Amino acid sequence: MMDVSRETQARLETFAALLIKWNAKINLVSARDLAQLWPRHIEDSLQIAPLVPRGARVIDLGSGGGFPGLIVGIASDAEMTLIESDQRKAAFLREAARACGVRAQVLAQRIEAARPAPASFVTARALAPLAKLLEWTQPLLAPGGQALFLKGKALPDELTDAQANWHMSHEILNSRTDENGAIIKVSDIRRVE
């Protein structure tokens, strides 16, 4: 488990209890994954927190059950914009943000339709191939900003595919929770002319 303050740990435990309660009614994580909630979802999402300065503005795409968006919000006291098209999941995100003391705006709409002010960071986890993430991220990322995506073993192929249509600077960091996973930090995103 990543080192976090007692206060952060308490807020994460509040979040986990709420997710377990809501998961009985709406599918936030699969029943199989519920037993692995901490290592598979919470700790995986926590890896992004040290990459986000305290209090930064962050847009999280496809927030679903709050991964990584609410976890980053809890751990880095970031100002979060969570985009989630599923109305029931959006309701969960609002309640979890309130219960965990996260400064969060929840946009219950499709990513393509959302028009929040651009942010310094855009995050996503288990959402779409890299090329699609870049398409969604480009208009949402402030100049000089960074996208932080948690990716799986398909990342090398996704990177090759994305580079056909996108110029970008990127750095790949090994996941601390998944031997096949990685975090890709992306900046200077622009379409190939």
Rank of each mutant, 00 (worst) to 15 (best):
S120H: 00
W166P: 03
E179R: 14
R125L: 06
P156M: 12
G152W: 05
L155Q: 10
E171I: 02
W166Y: 06
P143I: 04
R176V: 01
Q138C: 13
W166G: 07
L133C: 13
P156Q: 10
P118V: 08
E158A: 09
S169W: 04
P139T: 08
K132G: 00
L141N: 02
A119V: 12
A114Q: 10
F121K: 01
L155H: 13
L140Y: 05
F149K: 01
P143T: 05
L148G: 02
V122T: 03
S175I: 00
L159H: 08
M168S: 06
L134C: 11
A154D: 11
G144F: 08
Q146D: 02
L155S: 12
L150K: 09
P129I: 09
E179I: 08
R176S: 07
S120R: 02
P118F: 06
N174D: 15
I172D: 00
P156A: 11
L140Q: 06
S120N: 00
A142C: 07
R115K: 14
K151Q: 05
G181D: 14
M168V: 03
A126Y: 04
P139G: 04
A124L: 10
A108R: 08
R176L: 11
N174K: 14
R115W: 06
L155A: 12
L130M: 11
L127K: 14
Q109A: 15
F149E: 00
L159K: 10
E112A: 14
S169H: 12
R115V: 12
P143D: 07
R110P: 11
L127D: 13
L134N: 03
N165D: 15
K153V: 05
A108W: 09
T137N: 12
Q163I: 06
A108I: 03
A162S: 13
L140M: 15
L148P: 01
A124R: 08
W136G: 06
N165P: 00
A182S: 14
A142G: 05
A182Q: 08
G144V: 14
L150P: 06
W136L: 15
S175F: 04
L140H: 07
L127A: 09
V122W: 00
E179K: 13
P139A: 08
T137K: 10
P116I: 09
T177N: 05
H167V: 11
L148K: 02
L130A: 13
T123I: 12
D178I: 01
G145V: 09
L133P: 08
I111T: 02
K153L: 02
Q146W: 05
Q109I: 04
A117C: 03
S175G: 02
L134A: 08
D157Y: 12
A142P: 03
